[in-house]
Each structure stands twice: as structure tokens, then as C-alpha cells.
Design a protein around this nucleic acid. Structure first.
Lengths: 106, 106
DNA sequence: TGTGTATTTGGCAGTATAGCCAATCACCGC
DNA sequence: GCGGTGATTGGCTATACTGCCAAATACACA
């Protein structure tokens, strides 16, 4: 693989890696519904504030979400709407897997 | 997060995690063009055969690719075509990032 | 049966990631 | 300015991933 091609796939992988975590997928899904502050998200996730904050910063550094400080609170929102399309595909894989398992049993 | 909701996101994350690696993205992209044997892919990637084989098994276990042995060689192919749609979204994020960087400079 | 080729598996060392706690920073109201 | 609240950062340990080498497996053909 040539260096420039490799760089291209590294950039793509960086984005996907940022998404590839259960908590971060949940955060994306929730932010697809509208902006949320860290406190709300922390309550939903049920983990330490610092943990959620770090997950959000991973998503921010990947350019998937953006943050905006208003008073004491920081509000996060989805920056790229199509991210939810990724979910459709992922669920397509899951369905295909389920179908394959089903036909294997039969 | 309730256990069943958590499980849902863990499954999704498993699929994305399988994709989130430069070499594996390259393999997916190449397999989108048609089936390839391990030897071909190894030559293209330029890594050890064992390394490529392990990457392929990660994709297989996630249900993204399927393998078929014919003679000495094993041919891999994309099992779910929509995976390439994910790329479009990822590139959308990359473009948005680039645009943001650009406007920051100006 | 034996040799050679294609692929997988086991094992190891280096690196990265996750999640908690503690400490710090940023901002508001008093 | 001061205390209080929301969020981020630093640091630590446990866990997972990567990529190579070496060994094992699977198959074809002589």
C-alpha cells in the first residue's frame, strides 16, 4: 500500500474508531434527537462524568459532534447528520447475521 | 442504561470495531470490487500473511465478509453491500472537518 | 506417501484504550 | 472575592489490539 493510500484509510479508520464504542454509539444516537448537555448524557449513560466527558471529546476530536458552552453547562450536538445512516448499515449486517444463523439451524 | 439497550449498542459497536482499522477498511474496499483470495490481498496490503489472515477473520466473525475455500486458496467476498455506504458518511465527516479547518483559517 | 504451497493458529512484546478517582478549570450567584 | 456546580484533565490499573515469527493445518500433485 502506498503511503498516500494508507493515509486515506487511516483517516477513515480514525472516524470509525471514534464511533466504535457502545457508549459513544449511544451518545450519537441520543444527540441525533437534539442537543444535550453533559449532565443529561451522564445521567442517561450512568457512568462517571469524567468518563462521559472523555467519550464526548473523542467524538469531538473526530469531528462527529460539536460543543457549545452556555453558562455552566456544555451542550453537545451532532455535526454530521448522516452518521445515523451508518447505523442502518450496521443493523443490516446484524440482520444478515441473524438470518444466516437462522438458516443454519433449519 | 438498561442491560438490553446496552446489549444493542454493544452489538452495533462490535460491527463498527471490526471495520475501524486502516487495513480492514482497505480490505473491505477491495472486496467491494469482487472476491479476492488471501494471497492477492496480502500482496496488496504488503504485510505478513498471518496479519492479513487475522484481519480477515475479524471481518468474518463480524459477519461483514464470507470465505469460501477452493483448492488451496481461500476466497473472501463482501457479505453486505451497504458497507460501502458507511464510507460515504465517513467521508462526509472528513469533508466537514476540512471545511471547518478552512473557514477557521480565513 | 511425500513435497510444496496457501492459509490459519499460537504466542509474544509493544502499544493503545477504558473507566475510575482526584485535582483542576470555568462560570454563576451571592 | 467566595463557595458551589458543571465539566475537563491527569494519573493510574486493567484490559484489548496489533503485527511479527514460528508452528500447525489443508490441500494438490507427483
Amino acid at each position: 500500500m502506498e503511503p498516500d493510500v494508507k493515509a486515506k484509510y487511516q483517516m477513515r479508520a480514525r472516524i470509525l474508531k471514534a464511533m466504535a464504542h457502545p457508549t459513544r454509539l449511544f451518545l450519537i444516537d441520543e444527540l441525533a434527537r437534539g442537543e444535550r448537555c453533559v449532565c443529561e448524557l451522564t445521567a442517561m449513560v450512568g457512568a462517571d462524568t469524567s468518563t462521559v466527558s472523555k467519550h464526548l471529546s473523542v467524538l469531538r476530536e473526530a469531528g462527529i459532534v460539536s460543543d457549545e458552552k452556555r453558562g455552566l453547562m456544555v451542550f453537545y450536538s451532532l455535526r454530521v447528520p448522516c452518521v445515523t445512516n451508518v447505523f442502518k448499515c450496521v443493523e443490516g449486517v446484524l440482520e444478515a447475521n441473524a438470518a444466516a444463523t437462522l438458516s443454519a439451524i433449519r
